[in-house]
């Protein structure tokens, strides 16, 4: 994908490299990086910082490095490995990480209506943040809302616009507490996004505020 314009920021890449992001955000970051060589390279640089931290790690309690059992490790090696290797998805296929969480392709998603033609599917992750797929029919508005924490949205298909910019396939929109927006899917194609939040959204319309507890958005 050559036309990606909106990328992950340093804060997210550093947190992902360090392993400090909630699972829901990890999924969005891993999916974007599968689509984006630029962020993959930047992640590589942050991981190199992690490599330096590992080199220099000295335990807090002692000034001597701890020992690890080599024989036990060799025995472990003899027992073999269960790890499988993930390779690049064929073009047109979903990134493997996302495929795992859906349990299939986009055609297998079990959508639930959230009103006005918009549908969602919440993916199972740890509770410190949540991640959902959003299906926004062409030309449809997502109700105007603000954010209590951080919202990270990745476009998988189609495109949307909001007050700030246009977001197409592979683009990431990062919204924080200061941002309010009303995303609208572009006219020609239905838009599918992957969106993670670490706090519930703040809806401005009365109807949505009433419906919110039932929809879990």
């Amino acid at each position: 994908m050559d036309q990606i314009k909106h990328h992950l920021n340093d804060q997210l890449l550093l947190s992902y490299a360090a392993g400090n992001l909630p699972e829901a955000f990890n999924l969005v970051v891993a999916t974007h990086i599968t689509m984006c060589d630029e962020c993959r390279a930047r992640l590589g640089a942050f991981e190199a910082v992690g490599g330096v931290m590992l080199q220099d790690a000295v335990p807090a309690s002692a000034n001597q490095l701890p020992e690890v059992d080599l024989d036990a490790t060799m025995a472990r090696i003899e027992r073999g490995s269960k790890d499988e290797i993930r390779v690049a998805a064929k073009s047109g296929e979903l990134p493997a990480a996302l495929h795992d969480y859906i349990g299939g392709s986009l055609a297998d998603v079990k959508w639930r209506s959230v009103g006005m033609g918009v549908r969602q599917a919440i993916l199972p992750t740890s509770k410190d943040a949540s991640v959902r797929l959003l299906y926004i029919p062409a030309g449809t508005k997502v109700p105007d809302h603000g954010h209590r924490g951080m919202e990270l949205t990745l476009v998988l298909q189609g495109a949307f616009r909001d007050e700030h910019d246009r977001f197409g396939p592979g683009d990431i929109e990062i919204a924080t507490e200061e941002d309010e927006h009303t995303p609208i899917a572009e006219m020609d194609v239905d838009c599918i996004c992957l969106s993670a939040t670490d706090a519930p959204l703040k809806f401005n319309g009365l109807l949505q505020r009433i419906a919110q507890p039932f929809l879990r958005i």
């Binding site: 392993g19 970051v29 599968t34 991981e47 490599g51 290797i85 998805a89």
Partner: peptide, 27 residues
């Protein structure tokens, strides 16, 4: 060092946080 760091980071998440770690596809 960088490679070992990434393996250790992923194991820490697996074993201690008991979470899956979504990873980008290999190239």
């Amino acid at each position: 060092s960088t490679w070992v760091f990434t393996i250790a980071r992923n194991r820490r998440i697996d074993m201690l946080r008991k979470q899956r770690r979504p990873e980008p596809d290999e190239l």
